[in-house]
């Protein structure tokens, strides 16, 4: 069995939600908010919300799309916003730019809807991340499996989803370690191809465990 020189250290992350001052009642105000809010706010309403709502595997993508659908009733724009896939982004600036472009284009094309007041306001918030080591590490695939199986949702989300922004790469902590420390490139790629939009955190983890078991049988 391969033994990695560098262990995988399991970490957990907890998120506090900081209430921001801006809020939006119309699409035009949403656009202003998107242009001016902090990076932590864009992260909160896209990456973080996907982690918190992981159990919604149909039709939920991010808070902006949900508000546009449920409060402003603009299905067309909501659909566009929901189609944004956070896996395509390794930097908040690019994600913000695309969000702004979509809302701006819509407001320009449909000025009558830009100032229409929504049923509820949209409140911009921010995520404040607190990470702590779990005191669990892995040097072999067996140890990694054990750690993965016992990871909390927040820990799993931290390593699998929000890691993209930290790494600024279109991959995740698990895949990087499997590939670079254990040389398991195929397994690493399979992990990275698991769809976070159509899986819950639990079903994504279950798929990973099955992939590991298959790898162990091969060995």
């Amino acid at each position: 069995m391969n033994v990695a020189e560098t262990p995988f250290d399991f970490v957990t992350a907890s998120y506090l939600t900081r209430i921001g001052t801006p809020s939006a009642g119309t699409l035009a105000e949403l656009l202003t908010g998107l242009e001016n809010c902090s990076d932590a706010s864009i992260f909160h309403h896209t990456f973080q919300t996907l982690g918190v709502h992981h159990f919604l595997t149909k039709g939920f993508s991010n808070d902006f799309a949900q508000w546009t659908l449920a409060s402003v009733n603009r299905n067309d724009l909501a659909e566009q916003l929901a189609a944004l896939d956070i896996r395509d982004y390794t930097a908040i600036a690019a994600l913000r730019s695309d969000l702004c472009r979509m809302v701006r284009d819509f407001c320009e094309a449909h000025p009558q809807f830009a100032s229409q007041t929504g049923l509820e306001r949209f409140y911009f918030c921010e995520s404040v991340e607190v990470t702590v080591p779990l005191g669990r590490s892995a040097r072999t695939l067996d140890e990694f499996r054990e750690g993965l199986e016992h990871l909390s949702h927040a820990g799993f989300y931290f390593h699998f989803i929000s890691s993209r922004l930290r790494l600024q790469l279109q991959t995740n902590d698990f895949s990087i370690w499997l590939s670079s420390s254990l040389g398991l490139r195929t397994l690493a790629d399979s992990f990275n191809h698991i769809d976070v939009y159509t899986n819950t955190l639990d079903s994504a983890r279950a798929k990973m465990l099955r992939l590991i078991d298959r790898e162990r049988r091969k060995a």
Binding site: T12, S14, G135, H150, S152, H153, G155
Partner: peptide, 15 residues
């Protein structure tokens, strides 16, 4: 909530 969540609480409380 799952054993992982309790382990997480203990880890956060440790410091």
């Amino acid at each position: 909530v799952g054993a992982g969540e309790i382990e997480e609480l203990r880890a956060l409380a440790k410091p």
